[in-house]
């Protein structure tokens, strides 16, 4: 029986959905976004609506939560979130400066 999930019986290149297909970002990221909860409007105004950073992340690496959280396993450090935050609440910090 041909089964694309079984390496022995598969006959064609069939891929299956997996988080982290390309692996974790690892050490090549030079800057990482850090959300300042004192500035994030989702924290400072509990009724405010925003999630602009969540919307703009090209990979969906920011959660739609209060406050939003960055998934550093897969964040590539492009800086789009920091650039697009209407409240200037995200800073790009050098990896080596972060613990």
């Amino acid at each position: 029986m041909v089964n694309s999930r079984d390496p022995k019986s598969t006959i064609a290149a069939v891929q299956h959905p997996t988080v982290g297909e390309a692996g974790k970002t690892g050490t090549w990221r030079t800057f990482r976004p850090v959300i300042d909860e004192n500035k994030c409007i989702l924290v400072t105004s509990p009724k405010a609506r925003c999630h602009t950073c969540w919307m703009f992340c090209p990979e969906g690496n920011i959660s739609k939560t209060r406050p939003p959280r960055v998934n550093y396993d897969y964040c590539k450090g492009c800086g789009i979130c920091a650039q697009s935050c209407p409240h200037d609440a995200i800073a790009m910090r050098k990896e080596e400066d972060e613990p």
């Binding site: 982290g20 090209p58 990979e59 969906g60």
Partner: peptide, 18 residues
Amino acid sequence: LLSGTRSCAGCSMSLMYR
């Protein structure tokens, strides 16, 4: 779109597709 794709950092195609 599942995190950890092979696209470049800051790729707007990835954002468009997501």
